[in-house]
Design a protein around this nucleic acid. Structure first.
Lengths: 243, 243
DNA sequence: AGGTGAGTTCGGCATGCACCGAACTCACGA
DNA sequence: TCGTGAGTTCGGTGCATGCCGAACTCACCT
């Protein structure tokens, strides 16, 4: 079977620390240059170059050239989805053994970007709320926005005009590794994140994937999506066990 | 971040030909002994033993002892889902390059088992039909069976009594690597496959994951699920290019 | 035209690990 | 109690590949 060989190839690519670090860095959704990725993965530029070209050839990532830089990014939501699903299995690996929870992990658990949309308790809460008020239904192809949802989201400032172009990846559920629940990915998910950032409801924590809820965001999410009692930014439980 | 290290570990485990072959063999849903897996992966028993114990330790597979045999199986649907999602990305890898399609691949494309449920054109067709007649809705936690669906499925001979025990994995969508559409996994998916086999509507092709539609099955699927014109067992297109 | 900084290619090194054969344990049955 | 067959442990071999420094290309700027 030809597919089996490719499966091994893809898994082997992800199964290297340097490459996996680069992929994780790119999961934030932003494009990064080769030198930046080399630094993040703690390898020399030649080594990084080698890794990156292999991943480009395997179509895990793609590259665009601007000036004399090369910007790399995750090539497809499917790749992001695959990485999330591997992470999900990896989380199963050490179930009862002591799991150190750093403050950073706690922040990630509260809210983070997943490729280009929101995940964590925050992402799941928004998804729950939109589903509960029939703004979004998950259907056969992954999901769709109802008329009521379109009204709400457009008022919120989300651009739904791409809606009909590619229904497939328009709004798809994405399994959350920390919450083990679905959150909203695809175009709609990306737009919701973009707008939350634009309104300054959420801010990135340094250069990590973690996001932080601002005071304006607390009020905004409550008024727009009916989200209340999201807990503090950081779940006390997470800190109690923290390292 | 602790999760990143585990991600690498899991991917590296899958990224070895022998181990991936074993995992693929176990994707059929059946349990296999160490010697059988060693033979399938074309390695010696010591080597297989090493691989298997590593995968057990990583909780990708689990093992039960019966007599002096050890039976291995995929430890969780999440692992099966992960493998499918890696395969999906692997399928993206060589998009326009010439893809040889053997008769065997064609058979797999028509219908196959995916862990413990049906996939391929057949699996997708059944899912489509059940969703179209409102027998199944995909909801927040992945999916649920409606009252109409419960009636139809129970008449068909599916046991839904496990239904409330664990709603989570009761009925979940699973992305199909060849059709790139959802089919039905979870308990409901497993039961549908079991019943189709029991009624002799489907038979396994040799010891592969491919399944074949019998004459009784053609009539049965048409009458029960309104499935017609599933195409021949094998799509002529697949054979035309075949090797 | 020469300088600079990003990225690649090349050669060589080192280590990890997949693999096997031989010897071992262990469970079961005669 | 001994034989048999499944599975494991151990020691040793060899290949694959991750890694780097040095030298190179290439784009852009002065």
């Amino acid at each position: 079977m030809v597919a089996a060989a490719n499966l091994v190839e893809v898994a082997a690519l992800v199964g290297d620390t340097a490459r996996a670090t680069m992929l994780s860095a790119l999961m934030g959704g932003q494009s990064l240059t080769g030198s930046e990725l080399a630094f993040l993965a703690r390898v020399s530029r030649p080594t990084a170059s080698e890794h990156l070209s292999r991943m480009v050839e395997a179509r895990l990532i793609s590259v665009t050239r601007k000036r004399s830089y090369r910007y790399y990014r995750i090539s497809s939501p499917l790749v992001a989805c695959m990485l999330e699903s591997i992470k999900l299995v990896a989380a199963l690996e050490v179930p009862q053994r002591y799991q150190p929870r750093s403050a950073r992990d706690a922040a990630l658990r509260f809210g983070r970007t997943c490729y280009d949309h929101l995940a964590g308790r925050l992402g799941v809460a928004i998804a729950d709320s939109l589903i509960a008020c029939d703004c979004i239904v998950l259907g056969e192809d992954g999901g769709d926005v109802t008329d009521a949802g379109a009204k709400l989201l457009t008022e919120f400032g989300v651009d739904l005009s791409q809606k009909r172009r590619n229904r497939r990846i328009f709004c798809k559920p994405c399994l959350d590794w920390s919450e083990r629940r679905y959150h909203i990915a695809g175009h709609v998910g990306a737009e919701i994140q973009r707008r939350c950032m634009e309104l300054n409801w959420l801010t990135r924590v340094d250069d990590t994937r973690a996001v932080q809820l601002t005071t304006a965001g607390q009020a905004g999410l409550r008024d727009t999506f009916g989200l209340d009692n999201l807990g503090l930014q950081v779940d006390p439980l997470d800190l109690k066990v923290g390292a």
